[in-house]
């Protein structure tokens, strides 16, 4: 059982690596420089990068941006979500706006963000927060709507104050849903991050990819792609673990 559990996902990864190897051999036949896209070259570059300091600095910068973007999105999305869930009036007057704004790719704001906020970290923070706020807001609102009515009755039967009800029932009661929102938000942030870092900043994984391209260091570029995938996987895993821990689900 355990063997099969590991074997299947592993076989998918191995298959992908084989396809990658075959693809790069074929591509090298067309353009010789493509040989540096190959798995072996990439692995060698990855090893070198992991031992050096440069890649880690870019990773640190990117993760910091993720944290800030997510933090801002939580700070805005949670209260707005609670308000949406509690007040039909607020919900009805904002839902079309939110649904509209949500469907605009955050990247389309990029030129505007740079114009208003200047180059540097600020527009990246803005884009990430803007991308992440919707899943958090919508999941928080859904969490409020799905609160067990009996929990609220229980709180009332204890003559709970408004503060006690919010702190001991509502906030913990919607935390699972907020964490679901965070998980979706991390997925979106991680996807938006790389292109957002390709403009007006001089550090981060997105910058590193463009830089590798300009240096013609294609093995570094491929290595960076692997790192991005792996970090994204770890982030998602962390969010999922947090969610499970909170609910104490097996």
């Amino acid at each position: 059982m355990m063997g099969a559990n590991l074997l299947l996902p592993l076989s998918g990864l191995v298959l992908a690596a084989l396809a990658w190897a075959a693809g790069s051999v074929w591509l090298a036949g067309v353009t010789p420089i493509a040989a540096s896209f190959a798995p072996l070259e990439t692995a060698r570059a990855l090893l070198a990068l992991l031992q050096g300091a440069e890649l880690w600095e870019h990773v640190a910068v990117s993760l910091e941006r993720v944290a800030v973007g997510l933090g801002v999105a939580l700070l805005l999305g949670t209260p707005l979500g609670v308000l949406t869930g509690l007040s039909p009036l607020f919900s009805r007057s904002t839902t079309p706006l939110f649904q509209f704004a949500r469907m605009i790719s955050p990247l389309s704001w990029m030129p505007l963000a740079v114009m208003v906020l200047g180059v540097g970290n600020a527009p990246v923070y803005f884009l990430l927060a803007f991308a992440a706020v919707w899943p958090i807001l919508l999941n928080t609102a859904a969490g409020v709507a799905q609160l067990d009515k009996n929990w609220l009755l229980l709180a009332r039967s204890l003559s709970a104050t408004r503060r006690e009800t919010i702190v001991h029932v509502i906030l913990p009661g919607i935390t699972a849903q907020i964490l679901t929102g965070v998980r979706l938000a991390i997925g979106i942030i991680w996807i938006v991050l790389v292109p957002a870092e390709m403009l007006g900043v001089s550090a981060g994984l997105g910058y590193f990819i463009l830089d590798a391209r300009d240096r013609l260091a294609y093995s570094d570029l491929m290595a960076a792609i692997l790192v991005i995938g792996f970090l994204g996987y770890l982030l998602d895993h962390a969010a999922r673990t947090l969610h499970k821990r909170w609910l104490h689900a097996a």
Binding site: L154, A155, L158, A160, H168, A176, H248
Partner: peptide, 16 residues
């Protein structure tokens, strides 16, 4: 309350 263990569920609100 799924975020509290059995004992904390039983004691819920006694300190309100």
């Amino acid at each position: 309350l799924p975020w509290l263990n059995l004992a904390d569920n039983v004691g819920f609100g006694l300190d309100f």
